[in-house]
Design a protein around this nucleic acid. Structure first.
Lengths: 152, 152
DNA sequence: CCATCATGTAACATATAAAGTTGCATGAAA
DNA sequence: TTTCATGCAACTTTATATGTTACATGATGG
């Protein structure tokens, strides 16, 4: 399966925006992420609907942060993306008539459920502000070497 | 992403075989699983290479179990499949130059790593024999209703 | 009012990986 | 030597994330 990197992508966008106040166009963000503006709008749509960011059209328009970064967790962002499936593996058949399959599903579902719960729990423990703090640390040590955030 | 059901599938096959001694052709197993014989051979190849099952050609040939079901865990089976990726999500870019991306990756990798470790650990706790026991329980209660393993 | 800018969205194209299918080679048994 | 079964390569199909194009919508500045 192709790995889903939307969560990674949207966090990257949010963290970039958190680095300085103001509005950012999809094109600006897309360039920083080396992707297409439409992709930015796509992954941001859910966040807008939930009020974490705002978007405005026309001159001077673009995206702005509209939430308390200390309150929004990775889990909130994940939910805003529509809670895409976390696991690459699944049951061959859901609700099978075959008892053998039922036994297999029961065993796997147990493990899958635990892993999903753990992931969501971890996501819930990390706020965007924490990511920003970590980033500032990285920026600090990098600045000592005279390099920028995107530096080679 | 399309969900990988090979682990589910191969466990189904093994559990079917464990229900009665003897050899099973790929075609027989494929019919029970409602799939193609080549798919069976494909998902069984790794298990054969590791000695968990044997395959023989020609008249009377087919697949036979060749392991102690109390010793082989779901993790062993997973490994035999080639340890396919467990998570549906991943980082947008591995080893990025962008510090923002590095911060995002660090946070996600933590959660992803924990979830993977938990899954592997759970897999390691469940043997094929345990699956068989669970299946027998299910068969028992179903028999009281006059139904077979595949019965609708 | 209108030209410009930016988002919103649909539609289409591409990439990747699992699952299914076909064809044939290999080898064992009757 | 015919039949049966696996081994395997190559191809098709399907699903999904990602990328791209085109155009509608609406806001701003002239």
């Amino acid at each position: 399966m192709k790995r889903d990197s939307r969560l990674s992508g949207v966090l990257h966008v949010l963290l970039h925006m958190a680095q300085q106040p103001g509005t950012f166009t999809s094109e600006t963000l897309a360039k920083a992420m080396d992707t297409n503006p439409v992709v930015i709008r796509r992954i941001m749509a859910g966040l807008r609907d939930l009020g974490y960011v705002r978007s405005e059209k026309g001159h001077g328009g673009g995206w702005t942060l509209a939430c308390d970064l200390t309150k929004v967790t990775l889990r909130d962002v994940y939910t805003a993306l529509g809670s895409p499936s976390l696991l690459a593996m699944g049951n061959r058949t859901e609700a099978p008539g075959c008892l053998v399959e039922q036994a297999v599903n029961a065993a796997l579902d147990q493990a899958f459920g635990d892993a999903q719960a753990l992931l969501l729990s971890r996501f819930g423990e990390v706020t965007l502000a924490m990511l920003g703090d970590d980033l500032r640390k990285r920026l600090g040590s990098r600045k000592l070497q005279g390099m920028s955030a995107h530096g080679a």
